[in-house]
Amino acid sequence: MSSNVLKPGPRNLITDIAGISVGNATDEKVQTGVTVLRCAHSFVAAVDVRGGAPGTRETDVLASENLVGRADAIVLTGGSVFGLAAADGAASALSVDGVGLKLSDKGPAIPIVPAAVLHDLGNDGDKEWGEAPPYRALGTKAARNASAEFDLGATGAGRGAMAGVEKGGLGSASLVLEGGVVVGALVAANPVGSVYMADGETFHAWAYEIGGEFGGKNPPTLHELPEPFPDYSRLHFRAQAGANTTIAVIATNADLTNVETKRVAMMAHDGIARAVRPAHTAFDGDIVFAVATAEKELPADPQPMRHGLVARIGAAASDCLTRAIARAVYEANR
């Protein structure tokens, strides 16, 4: 691959990758929501969990040593432990559509729908839902809403999110690499750390911005290393383990194996560290999923070349996630 300047896809969304669609469902009364990424068919998938208190569903099934290693959809949701029910709703919707494993002539299709949750239970929304949390219904609705176009900011899984002391949100970004390989990121940004520099206006991600996608604010001149716990993080105000997280999906149209897809997910975590300061604290439950649609074939040999191309995709995924986090907060606070 050459050193040409890279550009986003036509939408600058993860849906620039053919076969990927995204749907949001938001409950304004509860101030929460669900985002579902749907796959046109079962795509190779992997996950890398770095959080100290993650909330997940069906992540083990994506491990390379296990049977499936693929996903029909991925759910990002608010609601902490209650939000996991969103995957039930999404799975039911997909099964009705005939999506999923058919192990015999009897019984419904069995969709593989991994999920990750963020904690948004402390906002001002009405959480007096008793024995009927809204997340299953929201998961069904988000799965039904999936399309190539979707909103960013305070919507879907990003509705109740916070980024430091500012509103968090839902973000996305894409890059088109040489040879038609496309990489994209989708994120619900709810970190305890700050996405802003000391001026409270410039994103840590400013150097990765393309075309003013999150405001075009250049950084102030810095003559010394800034405070490691920025004023705009929540670490100056409160620190509650497991109450914050950044959950994301990376996608590419390259024909990656399950192991290679896992490597891309691992590399993409660097994008969180670029966009948030501090990142990956004990108070964050950071999770990155990755899917590969296999539309674009990478050379199998020589192996060093293939490994290099996978590293290129992982680096682009990291850059996309950095940009997507800044876009999430920018759009939520406009």
Rank of each mutant, 00 (worst) to 15 (best):
T221L: 10
E224L: 12
P134D: 14
A137W: 06
S172C: 11
G242H: 03
P134I: 12
G215A: 09
F150W: 14
E213F: 04
A142E: 09
T140R: 15
A163D: 03
A198G: 04
A143N: 08
E201G: 04
A132S: 15
A189N: 06
H223E: 14
G139C: 13
A198S: 15
A132C: 11
A243R: 09
N218E: 12
F237L: 11
G130D: 09
I210M: 10
G200S: 06
V195W: 03
E224Y: 12
R144I: 00
P220R: 13
G171A: 05
H236G: 13
A189P: 01
L175P: 01
G168K: 00
R159S: 05
D231Q: 11
L177I: 07
G164C: 01
A188T: 12
Y232T: 12
A188F: 08
E128W: 00
G215I: 10
A163R: 03
P134H: 14
F214W: 07
E227D: 15
F214M: 02
E213W: 07
A142Q: 11
A189I: 03
A161T: 12
E128A: 15
V192P: 00
D124R: 14
A248K: 00
I210W: 05
G200F: 08
G160S: 13
V181A: 13
A163W: 02
T246H: 07
A248R: 02
